[in-house]
Design a protein around this nucleic acid. Structure first.
Lengths: 158, 158
DNA sequence: TCCAATTCAATTGTGCACAATTAAATATGG
DNA sequence: CCATATTTAATTGTGCACAATTGAATTGGA
């Protein structure tokens, strides 16, 4: 499938020793650059909602399941408390979530959606389609790429 | 090839309207998470060289072509001066590059490698193979994924 | 019971990342 | 030649991202 670029030159498919450090031969840089581009494409779509891209990820996690502890969010998003704590405080200041200590276990902080946070989901509903459009990639390739990346992540975490 | 997860459920391949905002259905999150994982995998390999991951990207760009202006580096890496200027000052402080105003056009700052910066390339030579190992992905899939991501980036920039 | 180990969030410090602004140098049109 | 526009880095301010530390709460084992 995807009869894709069988035009692999020897250099591209199996770089010579001296080319191993070329930017174009790095999967990491391709990932880094693509991730940055996609994040940047979200910015103008999220700005009217008052969310940054990482905040949008947190809200999506909460729209799926809430309340959740900081730890549970961190596991879902692969982020630690050093990143999440200030981000969640900003979401709290914006009125989208609340933070309260768990009564049973005071170490845990439960993050809950406010009405405004739940309402935001309606406004966000149009974002995935708007962004998919900007990818200029057929849907089946998007699905394929996503699965490949999820597979990569699963293997690296194992 | 890649007999991969033909277990595509309907939800995964063509999510229902209510699932469009699920994290698992986002290409952006798959990219974001994979990029973060790979960057993290570099950290222990780069630490002995005294480089962070973005600094490593800048050094790779310079190992290909030097001297280069800040602007040229920014175009190669898709980063702006707000990111590069302090990063390059740290590389200068570490002794890997020099920064000097262009004699012909004083607006430009030429970034040149020092001997130590060039020497670092030998130590870095083993990194790509070491990292590829941690990806737990067959080489042909790495090459494939890289090409797909480069294609995505090309389309989004066009 | 008591104490040692673990869990969890917050904090601190460093380093990206980018928008917006600034300021200097150069190019351009009249 | 001069005024204006453009180009280029640097700066400022906000917001991730993570390692390392801290401190409180909980758990588990003698």
């Amino acid at each position: 499938m995807t009869a894709k670029t069988t035009s692999k030159t020897t250099a591209s498919a199996a770089p010579a020793a001296g080319d191993l450090l070329r930017l174009d031969n790095q999967l990491c840089f391709a990932l880094y650059a693509a991730s940055g581009l996609v994040t940047r494409a979200y910015r103008p779509l999220l700005e009217p909602l008052g969310l940054t891209y990482p905040q949008y990820l947190v809200m999506m996690a909460l729209w799926e399941t809430a309340p959740r502890t900081v730890k549970a969010l961190g596991q879902a998003l692969d982020l630690d408390s050093g990143t999440l704590t200030p981000l969640l405080k900003r979401l709290e200041a914006a009125g989208f979530v609340t933070r309260r200590r768990d009564a049973q276990d005071e170490r845990k902080v439960q993050i809950e959606l406010t009405d405004a946070g739940r309402a935001l989901r309606e406004k966000a509903a149009e974002i995935p389609a708007a962004l998919a459009c900007q990818l200029h990639l057929p849907l089946d390739e998007i699905v394929d790429l996503r699965a490949t990346l999820q597979d990569l992540a699963r293997r690296m975490k194992a």
